[in-house]
Structure formats: C-alpha cells, structure tokens
Nucleic acid binder design. Structure first.
Lengths: 242, 242
DNA sequence: TATTTATAATGGTTAGACAATTATAATATA
DNA sequence: TATATTATAATTGTCTAACCATTATAAATA
C-alpha cells in the first residue's frame, strides 16, 4: 500500500540539490560554486559529507574541482566523457569485446554517413574537401605523417557526425572511437599503401555525401571501418604469436 | 622534453588500485571489500579520503555500499546504468532533445532487427512467439492491461537485442528505452486500437525475423518506433496547449 | 516455538586541525 | 621602469578522533 519512505543520505540530498540548480539554470556552465567552507554552512553539514557530494558530482561530469586560490567547484558543460568511460568500463570488465565494438561501429558509421548524405549543405562539403586536401598532403609525405593522417581521419569522421545535426551520433561515434583507439593504437602501422587506400575511401565517401547517395555513402563508410578492423585484428593475432 | 610529473591525489590512487584489482580478477563480482577501518589501515590513509574514493567507485558503478552489520563495499557487475544516466544528463542539460533520441532510436531498432533476422535460432523464435502470446492476451483485455502490454513490448525489444549477441546493442537499446520512457510515460494512453496496432507490428516483425528477411525486419522496426514517436509528440503538443 | 530485545559490526556524519597548491599582491633586483 | 622573486592568503586536500544510524545476529523473553 505504501512505499518505503525515501531515506536519502545527506550527501545524496546535496548532490540532487546542486544538480537541480544546474539543470534549472540557476547555476550556469563556468559558474563557480561557493567555497567548501561556505557551502558547508549553507547546507548545514560537515565538510566531509560535502566533499563526498562534490566528488560524486565531479564523477558525473557536472563540476570540475580546482585547487588553490580562486579555485573551487566550477560547473562544467556536460559532454560525452562519461559515456565513453562507461563503455570503457564495460570493455575492461569483459562484458564487451573489441569485436562487439567493431561491429557496432560499422553500423553506426554507416548510419551517420547515410544521414550526412541526406542533410549535407554546400558549406559542409567545402569543409570536408578542405580536410581531404590536408589528408592528401599527409599521404604524399608517407608514413612519417601517420599521426597527422590519423588525426585528420578522425576529424573527417567527426565532421560527418556534425552534419547529422544530432548530438547523440557525435557522442556515440566519439565514444566508440576513443575506446577502439585506446586498445588498437599499438597495432597501427599505416604504410604508405594503407594510407593511400584510406585516403581513397574518404574521397569516395565525400563524393557520395555530396551527391546525396545515401546507400552508397553507407556502404563506403561501413567498408572503410571494416577494413580498419581487419587490419587491426590481423596485427593483434601476429602479436599474440610472438 | 618532460611531461609534468603525474600528481595523483590520494583518493584517485585508491580508486585506481581498487579498479585495477577488479579488472584483473583479484576482486570478483559479489566480493566484499574489507571494512572501511581495515581498508584505511591497508592504504595508510584517513577514513575521509578513503570514503571519497569509495563514493567515486560507487558512482562509476563498480561497487555498491551497504549499511549495517555484514555491510560494506560489494563489487558489482558492471551494467548499463551509468551509460543510461550519462545520456539522461545530456538530455537534461539540453544538449540532446527527445527528437534526437527518437531519431537515433529508429536507426538502432532497425539495425537490431536486421541483425536479429540474420542470426536468430529456432529457440529465439520460440521465445519471441511466447511473448507474442502474452501480448495478445493483454490486447484482448484492453486498456486495463496497458502496463502489462508495455512491459511485454519492452521484453520483445530486449529479446531482439539479445539475439544479436552483441551486448552493446543491449546496452544502447536499454539506455534509449529508459530515457525515452522517463519523459514520455506521462503521455502514454494506449487505447485498445493502439494496442492492437502495436501488436500487429510485433507479429510482423517476428515473422520477418523468422524468415531472415533483414530489410523487411529493419523497416518494420523503424516504422513501429516512428509511430510511437509520433503519438508521443502529438500528445506532448496537446498537453502544451492546455 | 515465536517474539522481542540487546549486542556489535559497519557505514554515515561531525568537528577541528594542518598540509599542499596556486593566483595575486608585495617586494626586490637589474 | 621593467622584470624577476618572494611573501600572502584563499582554497582544496588530508588527517585524527569521536559519535550517530542502520542492521544482521545472538540472546533473552513470552
């Protein structure tokens, strides 16, 4: 008939109050909360309890705690870091394998490419073409520019996500990317031939987006990622044999 | 030339050590950590610092802290709760709208349905059919069984995710579902006609999965979700006018 | 035997102090 | 005067020591 009366721990109540203030706009991104000794008085709690609350808010990604004069708890813009971390924890706890992540990535990249092809403006295409030019410069200089190429490759992928106009795609793609590269970076070599192959993919993809060829864009993006995954898995196996 | 020497705060070091112990299997799901007064001695730190570390681990979803005799910090199985919470925070901070979430859901449901159609076993189909029977019973009883129907609908969706064999789909689908329903539940009415429509969708979907018709399964799943979204948006607008 | 009541283990909270960090102001130096 | 150095103070980080609140278990009681 009745529910058990909610017995919030003190620190939880503090977390909720501050969180509410943030979401209701009473605390804006960049605002600094009062110093701990002030907050402690305002909430009428001890400093230890307050600090537990602040740590939780920090871990949630809602505030950043800075040291020293002028320091304190600063309200942060919520971003994708926590999602990325959570996915990372799932991987590390072996609930999720890199193969699972790779499969998911193929699908998501395909969807993002298709949406981008539907929605791209001439301005978007211009930006993609600029990035392609930068990528080409890297390819010509060969494997010495490997890291620069990877960075540009990443930007092209993220730009596509931007074109969709849906921040979830941006978050998800970024989270996938972060987690895949955290594990695969050590297997990347990228000879000139591989760079060239990847570059060609990107060119084809931009062309498909420009022509609003949704299915073609989807297919190219999926194959692009698939090839990356195959390279990585092959290298991983070679490593294991040594 | 040099990187700034990493200056880990004490509580962070504790978080990392315990997290490492979990991922290396030295601490298994269900294990209880030593009591705070023991841990404090083992790490040679104060209880307050230790508790900040434990709160962080709790917020990460790695431990659960229980009160009373026999209580303590218990190692938890990592699940999708944190991902779900993070997405929820993005929504509440207005970085993500419900429309964004709905668009993403359409795509993901489509992919999951397609994968399910590729991979389903006769055993999976059997389970889906059982759920369909339960759903039918609810439909016949009409809107009084609305909540029961929604529960079974959810189970059918999650069973499809299970069939893919990829825990990421399970996590993502569950996170989407949790967040959409958190906001939309108040707009759900589900007259008998709507229940029947939804039930028909589910039947068609299971049939398509059984026949391994990937494209058809994708399309049905997407339309099923699309209709749900349209209902909700319509109700939301009606509400706003009052 | 069933119920109630104490016991003790354990997390939750408080208080007050000192240490470490850092932006800013004051001071010294070229 | 301009620049480098040094003190100052605000602020988080950590420590110690105690008491409060919750709860499983054991003991006492009906």
């Amino acid at each position: 008939m009745f529910q058990t009366a909610k017995q919030t721990k003190v620190f939880q109540d503090v977390v909720e109050q501050i969180q509410k203030a943030i979401f209701e706009g009473r605390l804006k991104t960049g605002d600094t909360l009062p110093a701990e000794r002030e907050l402690k008085k305002m909430f009428n709690i001890s400093r230890g309890t307050l600090r537990e609350a602040l740590r939780v808010l920090e871990q949630k990604g809602l505030i950043e705690i800075r040291l020293g004069v002028g320091g304190g708890s600063v309200v942060k813009a919520v971003d994708t870091e926590q999602i990325s971390e959570s996915i990372g924890l799932l991987i590390q706890s072996q609930k999720v394998s890199l193969n699972h992540l790779a499969e998911f990535r193929e699908d998501v990249e395909g969807i993002v490419a298709a949406h981008a092809a539907e929605k791209s403006s001439s301005h978007d295409i211009e930006k993609l073409k600029q990035l392609l030019d930068q990528a080409q410069a890297c390819v010509e200089k060969g494997s010495s520019q490997r890291n620069a190429f990877i960075e540009i490759d990443k930007q092209i992928h993220m730009t596509r996500a931007d074109i969709t106009g849906n921040p979830i795609y941006i978050s998800v793609l970024k989270s996938i990317h972060d987690n895949i590269h955290r594990y695969y970076d050590r297997f990347l070599s990228m000879e000139k031939r591989e760079l060239q192959e990847n570059y060609q993919d990107l060119c084809d993809l931009v062309q498909a987006i420009k022509n609003a060829s949704t299915d073609r864009a989807r297919r190219i993006a999926q194959n692009h990622v698939k090839r990356f995954n195959q390279y990585m898995q092959k290298r991983e196996q070679e490593e294991e044999q040594n």
